[in-house]
């Protein structure tokens, strides 16, 4: 790294800032127009609002039942995450610690399934889901997330556990700890860095997912944020004053999540991809 701040660095800094501003312009447009009246948007979308109207937000809040959608998204994301961490870390640990043909074949099966596009599975899954009573229910959707999330989560844990020395576990075994005890009390705390990565990747995926929930959830009161927003747009086409307020409400939670955890998120993404 070059510690000197040269003219070239300054030039690069300017380029970077200009690019950054260009990247953010869409957000500027969405924010300022979300507090305008419909006529003002049509006249000039770039202009600063003449008066700030928050009535758009109040209307949309009720129409899409935002608290409900937020709660649904939250429940689905949190429980899917917990489940995925538990089942994938346990399976990955046992598979790494039981070397042999069977574990190897299982691992290859899990990993190669990552190539299967969701669209290839979705049609029969809806039939099977109907038979198993998983459709139109939030627990059903969560179970489906368990199934879809396992390959990547297990893959990440598998790679990480291989770097964890086995000696600590062995000494705990000699002390008479059970397998579950060894795993939860000794191994799992050591997996924290990769657990953070797994949770971040799964959260961004599940929170923003659209296709699976739209297929599984039919009732209006089960809708997640993406579903509530899209059904709002289907109903109120081109009503940009309210549409933009809906969009701002839709993206705010995940942006707050990101800004608070950005250090972990960026690190986690980099780690998750390099593995």
């Amino acid at each position: 790294m070059n510690p000197r701040y040269t003219k070239i660095t300054f030039l690069l800094e300017i380029i970077g800032i200009v690019l950054g501003v260009i990247f953010l312009i869409p957000f500027y447009f969405v924010l300022i127009n979300s507090v305008k009246g419909f006529a003002d948007i049509l006249i000039d979308a770039a202009a600063w609002p003449q008066e700030f109207l928050f009535s758009n937000y109040l209307k949309v809040w009720d129409i899409i039942n935002f608290p409900r959608a937020f709660w649904n998204s939250l429940i689905i994301t949190v429980i899917s995450n917990i489940g995925l961490v538990v089942i994938s870390s346990m399976a990955a640990w046992k598979m790494v610690r039981t070397p042999g043909k069977f574990s190897k074949i299982l691992f290859v099966l899990f990993v190669s399934a990552m190539v299967i596009p969701f669209q290839t599975v979705m049609i029969p899954l809806m039939k099977l889901g109907g038979t198993l009573n998983l459709t139109n229910s939030i627990p059903g959707l969560i179970i489906m997330y368990f199934g879809f999330g396992v390959p990547l989560s297990l893959f990440l844990y598998h790679g990480f556990i291989k770097t964890v020395p086995i000696e600590i576990e062995e000494s705990a075994r000699i002390d008479g700890c059970s397998q579950f005890g060894v795993f939860w009390r000794i191994v799992f705390p050591l997996l924290k860095p990769i657990t953070v990565t797994v949770v971040i990747l799964n959260t961004l995926w599940i929170w923003n997912d659209y296709l699976l929930p739209i297929l599984v959830l039919q009732d209006a009161e089960l809708r997640t944020i993406p579903l509530a927003t899209s059904s709002f747009f289907a109903q109120y086409t081109k009503q940009w004053d309210m549409g933009l307020a809906a969009l701002v409400m839709g993206i705010t939670p995940v942006i707050i999540f990101f800004l608070f955890l950005q250090r972990h998120i960026i690190k986690g993404i980099a780690q998750g991809s390099i593995k």
Partner: peptide, 12 residues
């Protein structure tokens, strides 16, 4: 700044 768009889902 450059990473932000990535945390928002494709639909929105």
């Amino acid at each position: 700044v450059f990473f932000i768009p990535n945390v928002i889902g494709g639909l929105l």
